[in-house]
Design a binder for these strands. Structure first.
Lengths: 353, 353
DNA sequence: ATGAAAGCGCTAACAG
DNA sequence: CTGTTAGCGCTTTCAT
């Protein structure tokens, strides 16, 4: 069935089939080749390896491309070359400035090299993560960036089977699948804990999501408390993605359940901001009644009154760096022994602690 | 050149070519067909039109798929069927919660129907927008969602040539390319202006970006001032994407240049928050010295002290609705006369005005 | 520096 | 309900 012929050569007449779409199909390489007086391969070369062509040939092809408004079909190219020039990114949610910033950096890095970004969000569900990896594998993406570590067995196996470079971000896995860029959430939580302990707070609490990264930060906080001989922090779990309102609810509940509390570490700044606002409403002085500490150093943390102490992480750089690592590998760099980039974090002391 | 044969049948020996990648290529439909004792089309049908197959056949195919861990090559499928099941989205930037929320909604809508999202950011540059449309057209995306209207001639032409459904979002174009979902930025600006005027403010200013949508809101503010006989608002342009720090700088500059000012409308809440924080630092009472009004109703607006008056828009719903419109069209709905969905906005009065 | 031949892995049309 | 046939539009060898 020469379906193309139906559409093109016979289209005006359309005697064979009653197709609706009689409109002209877009130009193919062959038309361009004919217009330029060369063969289709030459057009392909003009697009992919222009330096291989004689200048006049190249000019003729380019002019034909412009005249015909030729738009190359990259799908066909991907199939033939087995390279899609697409990178898949999987994030827990887009409803959080954290991951948007990472995507921003990643998108920029990829764009510079003509790669494109296929995006999926998991809603913090491992099953969705596996489904997305499978879908991306089906699309034959050239690489995959994950926000968070792939812990579920199925996901790791699917990633390995996809046989493409993978970058895990936002944490430093002990056994990375391939590459990783981020920081140690546990160390960050511990640093936050030390900060609180060092400032004299004695009865700590944690409020945050139950995703792996938040849990790692909680472990760090627990480490810090234990190291200084304090009792274990009180823990309040929140659903993901968390909102400002969750922060307000959390602080109310925590201080009601445990009036002795003098410091709370939230797993992100939005939560801490919600808590700070609630404290203001209820007349609980911050930090004298209770100290509040956030995470991520979102813009909101700096302008809030009292300004929120937090842990700064470099979300955008994580994305940029992940993109660069991937591109370097795709450009042919040999696979080094597991490559891990630690971008670190820093505790930011402000008025709320 | 049976390249596949080189890799597969001769791979262990590899006498013909010195290829590096001797590893097994992933299974194809044909292997699955053989394993299931059917022909390749039947495998294709098991995947695409399962209800067309006899239950036992379907079961046999599915079992073979599982056993071989077959992952279908969607690139080949797209080429053959001329449908990619990919939707392209173009946003000015990912570094703004506004568009992330829209993408969140869009991603969800698409995901429900097995479509995937290809993402590009323009950095607020029309030339990038055109480049992305071309790139997406080359990928043969099934539809395109734009955040903002396509005003540049080249972009509109490229979109028309792509011959796919297009949804413009975040404003209501007078002459939509195809479909649109959003709200009238000019009306929103006018409503904000009325709000300020009605509360007795007399000397207004505007601070915001110079993208089309911000400009439309400014026009609305100008309308409102003119309608009530006030002098034209003072205008302070900021670069995109704007930051909290820009808001702080803007308020300082505006009140220095024009001490008579009693109200400022910012083109987003981040700017307004930065301004509010700066006012707090400088001891300028809000709203008695100067009233501040934001835009978008980001979470920060509600928890700030004083809470920021703003204009609420439904960023997430815009994405969701755009996705639904697109999917309906892709599912075969006839193209109606230009479809425009006005999701509206609402003025939110809080402490800052 | 250019061309000819041979697929990439899948799906649509048609037949049975 | 299932199979046969014929491409989708491009890139890759290999040859000249």
């Amino acid at each position: 069935m020469n379906r193309r012929a139906d559409r093109r050569e016979n289209a005006p007449i359309s005697h064979r089939t009653g197709r609706r779409r009689t409109a002209a199909a877009p130009a193919r390489m062959e038309e361009v080749a004919r217009a330029a007086g060369v063969s289709p391969v030459t057009v392909s070369r003009a697009l992919n390896h222009p330096q291989q062509l004689a200048p006049e040939t190249l000019a003729a092809v380019r002019s034909a491309i412009d005249r015909l408004r030729y738009v190359r079909n990259l799908t066909a190219g991907s199939l033939a070359s087995n390279r899609s020039r697409i990178v898949g990114a999987i994030v827990p949610t887009l409803a959080s400035s954290l991951f948007s910033d990472t995507l921003n950096g990643l998108s920029e890095a990829l764009h510079d090299q003509g790669y494109q970004l296929l995006l999926g969000q998991t809603g913090y569900q491992a099953s969705e993560e596996a489904a997305l990896v499978r879908a991306f594998a089906g699309r034959r993406v050239d690489g995959i960036v994950l926000a968070g570590m792939a812990r579920a067995r199925g996901v790791r196996a699917a990633l390995r089977r996809a046989a493409v470079p993978v970058v895990e971000t936002w944490d430093l896995p002990a056994r990375p699948i391939d590459m990783a860029v981020g920081f140690s959430n546990r160390d960050a939580g511990r640093a936050a804990g030390w900060h609180l302990v060092d400032r004299g707070y004695k009865r700590l609490a944690f409020a945050g999501g139950s995703d792996d990264r938040s849990q790692a930060r909680l472990l760090g906080l627990i480490d810090a408390a234990a190291q200084r001989g304090l009792s274990a922090p009180l823990v309040w779990h929140l659903p993901n993605p968390s909102t400002i309102a969750d922060g307000a609810a959390a602080i109310t509940r925590l201080l009601t359940d445990e009036p002795e509390l003098d410091a709370v570490f939230f797993s992100n700044d939005m939560l801490a901001a919600g808590a700070a606002a609630e404290c203001a409403r209820r007349g609980w002085a911050v930090p004298s009644r209770v100290a509040l500490m956030g995470f991520a150093d979102l813009p909101i943390a700096a302008v809030f009154e009292p300004a929120l102490s937090t842990v700064q992480v470099r979300a955008r750089e994580i994305g940029r760096c992940a993109g660069d690592l991937l591109l370097r590998r795709l450009a042919g760099a040999a696979r080094p022994a597991a490559r891990i980039v630690d971008l670190g974090f820093s505790v930011v002391h402000r008025g709320s602690t």
